[in-house]
Simulated assay, not measured.
Amino acid sequence: MAEWTTLLVAESADRVVVTLNRPERRNAIDQRMVDELHALCEDLERDPRILILTGSEGVFASGADIAELRERTAADARRGINATIFLRIAELPMPVIAALDGYALGGGAELAYAADFRLGTPRLRIGNPETSLGIIAAAGALWRLPQLVGEPLAAEITMAGRVLTGEEALAAGLVSDLFEPGELLAGAHALADRIAKNDPLATQYTKRVLRAPLGDHPRAEREAQAVLFESPEKHRRMTEFLERRKR
């Protein structure tokens, strides 16, 4: 976009770092942010790179913007405004890393669930209190969260309003590592560095097959491998490996 108003976007050759930037609203996700995230996805679909998502001023995202949410109608619910952008983020060709600090609640948590990797801090607070506001978590929590942490804990989070601390999220496998707040972004970059060392095309196919429906396996693996077996990059990397072994 010509100008970002709710996001801070830093681009490099192999990754894009996006900071949710509505600190006066604890980075609540409003329609403008949704629109800007769609524009970002359009760019990353055209030019696949790793995406790191984080939040400004010690908060990932406190949820959807309640002032907007209060005015939404049944027609808006059926449009799936947040669900659609979170699905698009989940389906980006390259991995998405969510670096979570402070509050990641409601829609903010659902955005985090859509990522491939989640890193946190000890002061992380993540959960889905939507039923306290008279709605449900309708942007992915009710089907992504059981896959991530199991149905009993997902039920406690989405129906009983349990909010996990960083340590609890780590123990549940919802985040894969914890960092002190000042080291969180460096931790996300270190993970991105490990991903970036691998063949981007192989990474893209791995993500695609990992997310394929169960009924698509093992055909999906065979078809992906068939493409990669003909890849010049596969030949180059394997040749380098064999030459190193000779030394």
Rank of each mutant, 00 (worst) to 15 (best):
N21L: 02
G127K: 10
W4S: 05
E91N: 15
A137G: 10
I97K: 02
R144Q: 09
A64N: 03
E156Q: 14
S62Q: 13
A224R: 02
E183I: 13
R22H: 07
A169V: 01
V59D: 01
E24M: 14
E233R: 10
G161K: 14
R49H: 08
D14P: 00
R22I: 00
D76R: 08
L87T: 13
L92G: 02
V9D: 01
P152R: 11
E183L: 15
R245V: 09
E230K: 15
R222A: 02
A77S: 07
G120R: 03
A188V: 06
A67H: 10
R244L: 10
A83W: 06
A154C: 12
E230D: 15
L119W: 00
D116G: 07
H217R: 05
A186R: 15
A171W: 07
A114G: 08
A141N: 12
S62R: 11
I29A: 03
L133G: 12
S12I: 06
D76P: 00
G173F: 03
N21F: 15
C41T: 05
M238A: 09
L142N: 09
Q204D: 01
R15M: 12
E57D: 15
V9W: 01
A137W: 03
I157H: 10
G215R: 13
E180I: 13
V163A: 14
D199W: 01
N27F: 00
A169C: 04
Y205N: 00
L40E: 00
L105T: 06
T6I: 06
A139C: 12
A212S: 13
V163C: 10
E71M: 05
E3N: 07
S12V: 10
A224D: 06
N27H: 04
L210F: 13
D116I: 04
E230I: 13
A192N: 09
R222T: 07
A139N: 01
T203H: 10
A64D: 02
T54K: 10
E233P: 04
A172G: 05
R118P: 02
Q147E: 14
A10Y: 02
G166N: 08
P181T: 12
K197L: 15
A155T: 14
D101K: 08
R70N: 00
L164G: 05
A64G: 03
L124E: 08
K246V: 13
R208M: 13
E36I: 02
E240K: 07
L174C: 06
D76M: 01
A196G: 13
A61L: 05
A61P: 00
L178W: 06
P95Y: 06
P213I: 11
V96D: 04
A172M: 07
H189T: 14
W4Q: 00
T239N: 03
